[in-house]
């Protein structure tokens, strides 16, 4: 490889933890100030004007978590600031900084997820029952965007398969479709910077959805998801390009045929249904051999992209015998 760093960093470089702790402490302090009623108008709100970090998590709460064997080790975490200010969430604008500015409009409470289609139990879960369904795990995953940039995110959630088991899909259910929140009155102005037919739709083959790496995600960095990162519940599929990981999910449909997916509708030659991270299949407009790690100086960003984003051991079997150039 001519360019790019090896993907794994020795764990000695692990986590800007001090920064994170300082940040959590500041949150605690702010909460304390608000609780003592020192500032009756809400210290959080006032502080948030001066402190972008506080603003990011202004509406989030801390989550109780357990550790997970499925976590990725040896990677330096991307800062909370970057994870929350470098987002693709086109319903809230097409620029990376737009969702952080606009996603506060997303009404995350009350929230429910409707299960539909070929299942024995077409249940509707409110967000609290989903949070309590299984213990919430801390899982660090690499996140590789199809645009050739990447992050390392400490997500919180549990395997999507746990929810699927609860719904008891029928044998005729071959695919799962995820539909994101969309309300013209809420996102309309921003969402029409594109000609996408909302709501956002994504999907997986049933066996992909049952893979333990596929994660139903509720939080990051110890807290519930900030809106721009897909609050209150999303999926995270670390071996696929980021757009497969649908945000702010309101419906999960079990279906017989491959569901339509938003970016595939927009440009079928650029975004396939599978969209597994694959350095050997270029995007028509750029190479996928390397990626830019977010949050580093420009001369240190470039690194090699790994097959299945480095999760081949866990997921390669799903695609045995498939031509991944055709099924990109």
């Amino acid at each position: 490889m001519l360019i790019g760093k090896p993907p794994d960093i020795p764990s000695s470089e692990f986590t800007p933890k001090r920064a994170y702790e300082a940040f959590i402490n500041r949150r605690r302090f702010l909460r304390g100030a608000a609780a003592t009623g020192a500032v009756a108008l809400g210290a959080d709100r006032i502080a948030s004007v001066f402190d972008p970090h506080a603003r990011v998590l202004a509406d989030t709460t801390k989550l109780q978590t357990v550790s997970s064997p499925l976590t990725t080790t040896g990677e330096q975490l991307t800062s909370l600031e970057d994870i929350t200010h470098y987002n693709n969430y086109y319903e809230f604008g097409v620029n990376k900084g737009d969702p952080a500015k606009n996603a506060h409009a997303l009404p995350t409470l009350p929230w429910s997820v409707k299960i539909e289609g070929k299942v024995a139990k077409p249940l509707t879960f409110d967000i609290d029952s989903l949070l309590k369904l299984r213990p919430l795990e801390d899982r660090v995953y690499r996140h590789r965007c199809v645009e050739a940039w990447s992050l390392v995110v400490p997500w919180i959630g549990y395997s999507l398969s746990e929810l699927i088991k609860e719904c008891q899909p029928l044998s005729s259910a071959k695919f799962v479709q995820f539909l994101s929140y969309y309300n013209r009155g809420v996102e309309g102005a921003w969402a029409y910077q594109t000609d996408i037919a909302w709501p956002y739709s994504e999907g997986l083959r049933m066996d992909e959805a049952m893979n333990p790496l596929a994660m139903l995600t509720f939080g990051l960095y110890g807290q519930t998801l900030p809106n721009q990162d897909g609050a209150p519940v999303r999926v995270v599929l670390p071996w696929k390009y980021g757009f497969k990981s649908a945000k702010s999910i309101v419906k999960i449909r079990f279906v017989e045929k491959m569901p339509h997916t938003t970016w595939n509708d927009e440009a079928p030659n650029e975004y396939g249904f599978y969209s597994n991270v694959n350095p050997n299949v270029d995007h028509p407009r750029w190479s996928q051999k390397t990626e830019r790690r977010i949050g580093l100086p420009f001369y240190e960003q470039r690194r090699t992209t790994l097959m299945f984003n480095g999760y081949g051991d866990q997921v390669a079997y799903l695609y045995k015998g498939m031509d991944l150039r055709k099924n990109f």
Binding site: E81, D82, H85, Y86, K96, W149, R292, I294, G295, L296, P297, F298, Q301, R302
Partner: peptide, 11 residues
Amino acid sequence: NDLGPDPTHTI
């Protein structure tokens, strides 16, 4: 070191 999260893209 203030070129945003993705300095390459910013430049």
